[in-house]
Amino acid sequence: MSDFPDLKSGLTGDEKRACSITIANRAFVVSFVLIGATYILLILGMLIADGAYVFEQSKSKARKSPHFWASMMSDNPIAVSLRDPKIQYSIWLSMISCTLAAILSVLFAVPLGYVLSRIPFRGRNFVDAFLDIPIVLPPLIVGLSLLILFQFAPFKWVARSIVYQIPAVILAQWAVSCAYAVRTMKMTFDQINPRCEQVAISLGCSRFQAFSWVTFPEARLGLLTAFTLAWARSLGEFGPLLIFAGATRMKTEVLSTSVFLEMNVGNIEGAVAVSLLMIFASIVVLMITRYASNPSADGKAAVLP
């Protein structure tokens, strides 16, 4: 190609090709970055809007008060919400129920994730796919299905002390968050070298000893990730709760229910304030998860020249 110079531009074919490849590569990278950035801006915009809304509300209230800064501090929607006993109850119930749901999730996810990762059996792929059902099922359906399940024995016998009570909150949160924990634990066990366990067995261990002395300690970061993921999932749970646990104030009200109830009574300020509390909790959880799953991942991504 290079033997035939293009008379008009003075460039050889190879040079022209090199030039067009450079332009095409730049266009490719720029367009992908722009498309990606749009979504990132949307997330950022949503978070900033929540913050700005609360700030504006506080400012307009504080202007009417003689002590501007004192009013800003004490009368802003977040402070008002935090003083509200209903919201205080909802925060406590959220913390306790999410923690219990996360502990339950991990308790079930460790054996289940291990079995799926290590023990070959017929239908393993089917079970693996089956465990995605709580993740893909519409949340309302999960709640409704739980409600229907408690119409039947033996669940029927304890339905009175569970349905529309606090245990229903934990059960509904656990039903969904456990699936995420199982996914995480299976991935964790998949990444741990099974040879280590074999070596431990050859050195005289029972399977349980090999698991508890060798594999489980190696899975501790995955365990932390599974726990925080289940916790965050439980915090955001709403649909199943509404149906299975109800939305009774000072009884089965968790933070997501609070947002819904505040919106229903037209208190958008309150709803946004509670949302900000949840955003804060989610970001903390996200940071823990990211750190736990990959403490030194920065800069390790593959770089194309």
């Binding site: 280590c196 074999q198 070596v199 067995i201 029972s206 190696e218």
Partner: peptide, 19 residues
């Protein structure tokens, strides 16, 4: 059971217990 056979086993990658 492999635990009772009393064989010292060295796999290719060593498979050391990392914790």
């Amino acid at each position: 059971n492999p635990a009772l056979r009393g064989i010292g086993y060295l796999p290719q990658d060593g498979a050391l217990f990392s914790t």
